[in-house]
Structures are given as C-alpha cells and as structure tokens.
Design a protein around this nucleic acid. Structure first.
Length: 283
DNA sequence: ATTTCATCCTGGAGGC
DNA sequence: TGCCTCCAGGATGAAA
C-alpha cells in the first residue's frame, strides 16, 4: 500500500498522536516482522522501550522511523499491506495484528499486515542514536535521495543507463519513495512511455519527468494518499487521491487527455498503465 | 558491478 | 457453492 505519499500521511498522523508519549510496552506477536542486526537479542531490546518517550516520527522513502529519547529506534517498512492504526481493528482482521505499542494512557498503536511483507528494524545503540546510525543500521545508506533533493542535472545524469524508465523509477537505491502507482502517474504526466530506455530521454523530458514526479507526490500527499484496496491512515481513513489517477488501474478506460483507451502491459513483473497516444515510445 | 527473476504471503474477483 | 487461476501498492537474495 504505502508509497511515499501514504507513508508521509502516516508519519504526520502518528506524530500528532504519539510524539511525546511514554511507551508502556511493545508486544511482538509475529517474529517474522523483526529484521535487523540485533535479531539475536531483539526481545531484550524491545524490553528497553518500556518507559521511553517518543522523540520523533519521521519518514525516509517508504520507511517510517520512530525514535525515542533513550537511544532506541523502530524503522518500519510497511510492504504491500502494512497498516498502522490507533484503534484496534475489529473482526477477522484481528489475526493480522502482528505487533502493538502500548502507551501510558490510550490509544495503543496496532500494526496490521495481511500479506506479511512488512518488516521492522529495532535499532538499539547504547551510545546514543542519531539519525545517521539509524539509517546505517536499517540499510538506509543504499537508499536513493528523496525526489525533491535531486537536481535536474543529477537526475539527467542518473538516466545514463539502458534500463527501462519504469524499472529505474521503481528502484529505491536510485530514487526513494516511488511505487507502481506514482511511477505510472508521473510517466503519464511527463508523456513518457514506461518501456522507454532511460538513456533515450532528451534532457528537456528528463526535467519534465522530475517535475512531474515531485508535483504528483506533493498533490497525493495533500489528498491523503491513494486507497484502492487496503490503505488506511492511522485514524482508519482512506486516501482521496484515487479519483485523481489518470492511468493507474484504468485499463480500457478513455485517456483523460485524448480518449484513447488506457493500455496495460507487464514490465519487470509489474503492471504498467499508459496511454499509447500521449506517451510515445520514441521522440 | 548491475540488473533481472522467483519468492515471500493472504484474500478478493472472476470464470466455469 | 466450490474450485481454479489470476491479480495486488514491495523488497530481496541468488543468479546471470
């Protein structure tokens, strides 16, 4: 579910509700959810969260970072269906709750994940945690920059390869935060066919693509992200960007610019939606 | 060194 | 109703 705009909304929602609160306990029901360098002693690390105060809730790429005032951090990767909720999910969904953070006073924070592709890193550094250490510990050093931190020039340089633009934009080690929805939408906005080779993009189109990526992400953030099936913010609300989508999941429907039916192809194992008229393969 | 591919999971939709 | 296949917002380790 979560690409950059969704995670940004989750971070904002959590910040409001849990920043400054004191953790009573963290219950991990599903060990599968644990990842990171301290696997052998994660239970001990978890116990150290008792009494810690939440210092910050931030986002980097599609990952969420919760830091405490006693050198601990949780880095959360939500995978496809990971959801953080400030209210206990009802019914069937209960079996998909994998861990819970209880605070002194309510509400608790519940992690739900139907497909269990999500992961959590527990960063426990007795010498003090700074953001750099957290990033290192959770493999952030391999993550590419945030889209708005890339200059036109650098973006164009990054495109000097023979990969398909679709595959490239999904690669988190080059640019952080984009997933299938926003890649398709950005490529449509920039008039670039998803199967286009990176190195075939003229500089002007490279500039336009970067601008499209940034503006679509920012708009999606302001609309609360996109919900097409599972995504909910911590308050249990859906995103409102779905109705703004121009190509994603609109196979066969008329292009909003030229009425040509939207096509779907599979590239790099992911479905890609595009308008063959507005997004040409060659310039 | 880079890049592709199968794989990790569950559930919902649609065909027969 | 049941059974089958296909599909889904992601990331990764092994293999090429």
């Amino acid at each position: 579910m979560p690409e950059l705009p969704e995670v940004e909304n989750i971070a904002a929602g959590l910040r409001k509700q849990i920043q400054g609160r004191t953790i009573e306990s963290i219950c991990m029901h599903t060990p599968l959810v644990i990842k990171g360098p301290h696997k052998s002693r994660w239970r001990k690390s978890l116990a150290r969260f008792k009494g810690a105060k939440v210092k910050s809730v931030t986002r980097r790429g599609k990952r969420l970072i919760i830091m405490t005032d006693n050198s601990l951090a949780l880095v959360i990767q939500l995978g496809m269906t990971g959801t953080l909720l400030l209210q206990k999910p009802e019914g069937q969904k209960k079996r998909h709750i994998h861990w819970v953070i209880n605070f002194q006073g309510r509400p608790s924070l519940y992690y739900m994940d139907v497909r269990r592709f999500g992961r959590v890193w527990i960063i426990d550094n007795p010498n003090g945690v700074c953001l750099d250490e957290v990033m290192e510990g959770a493999g952030f050093s391999k993550m590419g920059p945030e889209p708005w931190d890339i200059s036109k020039k650098d973006f164009y340089k990054l495109l000097a390869n023979k990969r398909m633009i679709k595959t490239f934009l999904l690669d988190q080690t080059r640019i952080a935060g984009l997933g299938n929805i926003y890649v398709d939408e950005s490529l449509f906005a920039a008039g670039v066919h998803p199967a286009r080779l990176c190195c075939d993009l003229p500089e002007a189109q490279s500039d336009k693509l970067l601008r499209s990526i940034c503006s679509i992400l920012k708009r999606a953030i302001s609309y609360g992200g996109t919900t097409f099936s599972d995504y909910l913010n911590p308050y249990g609300e859906t995103g409102r960007f779905l109705k703004m989508l121009k190509v994603y999941q609109r196979t066969g429907e008329p292009c909003k610019k030229c009425k040509t039916p939207i096509e779907r192809v599979v590239l790099a194992g992911r479905s890609s939606h595009f308008c063959a008229h507005c997004q040409e393969l060659n310039t």
